[in-house]
């Protein structure tokens, strides 16, 4: 049965919030995230009748790739140039933790768009390397190298994880 406008609107209501969160993590800007999401949804609308099955992966793919391809043209001016200060030790005060989180967030803004996308897809969406590669339209090797470069820039040691959900390929 061909999807209808009602299907589309239902999808938008149900899935806008998580998609908007992803868009925000990519753009680091609430207004740009809204713009990115609406652009992706509008693109999806014109292909709606050709989508088989769950449309969310398709829309998410449009969203991420729109971000990766438009970033250079529309949003190039948003990169702060701050270097992430080195932080030492694992036992930190609350103030230090807040500062570290802020620094990490700002450091993400220095990442090239594809590296930022890989970080969001891998560590927020919890996608596997293969899923991330499929979504970005690149090889698993590229995802690995982009992830490795991004983590190095964020000064994250992938071996310093206490989280059970650490991706299998980082163990």
């Amino acid at each position: 049965m061909r999807p209808s406008r009602d299907d589309f609107d239902t999808f938008v209501v149900a899935r806008s919030a998580p998609l908007l969160r992803t868009a925000y993590l990519l753009t680091h800007d609430h207004a740009l995230a809204e713009d990115l999401l609406q652009t992706a949804l509008a693109k999806a609308w014109f292909a709606w009748r050709r989508i088989d099955g769950d449309p969310e992966p398709y829309v998410r793919k449009i969203l991420v790739n729109t971000y990766a391809t438009w970033w250079r043209r529309k949003w190039h001016g948003e990169r702060p140039s701050d270097e992430l200060p080195e932080t030492a030790g694992t036992a930190r005060s609350e103030a230090e933790s807040v500062a570290s989180a802020t620094d990490l967030w700002r450091a993400m803004e220095t990442l090239p768009p594809r590296q930022r996308a890989v970080i969001v897809l891998r560590f927020f969406e919890d996608l596997s390397e293969a899923q991330t590669a499929e979504l970005l339209g690149c090889s698993v090797g590229t995802v690995k190298s982009q992830q490795s470069k991004a983590l190095a820039k964020l000064r994250i040691d992938p071996t310093l994880s206490l989280h059970d959900g650490t991706p299998e390929d980082l163990r």
Partner: peptide, 17 residues
């Protein structure tokens, strides 16, 4: 040096905002 838990926490916190 940060760890992946911190990265996940930052992403989750920001997304929740």
């Amino acid at each position: 040096m940060n760890d992946l838990n911190e990265l996940r926490r930052v992403l989750d916190d920001r997304a929740a905002s």
